[in-house]
Design a protein around this nucleic acid. Sequence first.
DNA 1: ACAAAAGTGTTATTAGTACACCCATGA
DNA 2: TCATGGGTGTACTAATAACACTTTTGT
Lengths: 241, 241
Amino acid sequence: MKEFNLEQYLPHLSIDCVIFGYEGKELKILISKSKFGDNLWALPGGYIKKTESIDNAASRILFERTDLKNIYLEQFRVFGSETRIIQSSFNETMRAGYRQYDSNRFTDEVISWLTDRFVCIGYYALVDIQKVTTQTGEFDQLLEWRNIHDLPVMMHDHNDIVLEALTALRLNLDSKLIGFNLLPEVFTMREIQELYEAVYERSFAINNFQKKILDLKVLERLEKKFTGAQNKAPYLYRFAK
Amino acid sequence: MKEFNLEQYLPHLSIDCVIFGYEGKELKILISKSKFGDNLWALPGGYIKKTESIDNAASRILFERTDLKNIYLEQFRVFGSETRIIQSSFNETMRAGYRQYDSNRFTDEVISWLTDRFVCIGYYALVDIQKVTTQTGEFDQLLEWRNIHDLPVMMHDHNDIVLEALTALRLNLDSKLIGFNLLPEVFTMREIQELYEAVYERSFAINNFQKKILDLKVLERLEKKFTGAQNKAPYLYRFAK
DNA sequence: ACAAAAGTGTTATTAGTACACCCATGA
DNA sequence: TCATGGGTGTACTAATAACACTTTTGT
């Protein structure tokens, strides 16, 4: 494994991604178990190369973890408390973890760079879980999809970042027509509704919901989907930009 | 003037503030004419000390320019294109300006720090213009309140930043009840309405507007305001949190 | 024929807009 | 008493929510 070339990155500035996916009627996010600690969880994140925009950096970080390009993503907030990392109880664990993992690669200089103060730009991403091929980044031991209500305590302020991302998602889902990024190409009306119900944690009346979604004039009705169930077959829809 | 101590700041990271004020039925922002160029305009900005949060940095930057503490302010977006400064036509002008201004203070090292790539966190602030005592920051030649539709071409992407700030303000004015930060302690219904009309650049029906604002249940009706005009005296209101 | 769930229509409630009118004020 | 602009009530319209019903499917 090549040495960690910290010179190529902007110091003190990181990106953390809340990657939303939807599966089995549950809203999930992809979280990372760190290589450098025992049971240390974090949001997938990374640093910004001096030669790339922050949006490109976020895309790259996502591509490294999901093997997907052209993911829908949006910055939602900057986390810039001066104590969010320095006074974090995780920081000492991290230092020890880096050193133990590979003391050649993680020199004192690199460790001090990595555990110094960071201002973090939060991005959220929406993906179709079926399309994702998770692959660990250089700091990840493993990646895992977890229900947003079944998250471990994560390092630093990452649990707060998730809450903020969820707030931003709820604000935007309706107005920006971005929900379809969480679904496969074709889907039934019930599937969209269940997605909305998972995001907003409330139920919607089936007829009013259908009317509201169809009134957006962004869906194309396709053939019916016969599942073999003894009930009326639902129509399939496709997002038609 | 003391030497510019760049060691105390996070490199490559800046804050620019869109400071909104309201005066004479016009929405204005405070802009800065730079010391280091001939007719070089910019948003009031600054850098983040290694020991302070980004919110505190923004407050400090605002305090330096307005002499006000506890200003309403909010981050609204990060501007992180890799070329927003490096390839900006203003960058060469800035380099020459610094050198010419004080070559002792602005050493090559300092100039290269100042004109390197920056990721900028955009904040917008809402102030009561009457309460502001403008005072130039260390990089400002002068500060000026200007109508949002009468802005000069500003350096880098600062004109874009203003547009984004205005979009954010329009999104939040209604939902977050923040408009009162632009008005004095007491005001008439017409004054709030004219403020809204300036922000949204449209007119509102007087009775419907009044109903909508009063339905928010955040205003306290005070005594009438007798101006000497030969018409019914309007009530004064105060924001009652 | 029946159960299950899809899909549609119709009414009720609420929020938002438009119109008309009355009121206080000082010359 | 008049012009001016403040203030209020009512009717209209559109958006949303609630309720009732019909249709399709496979057993």
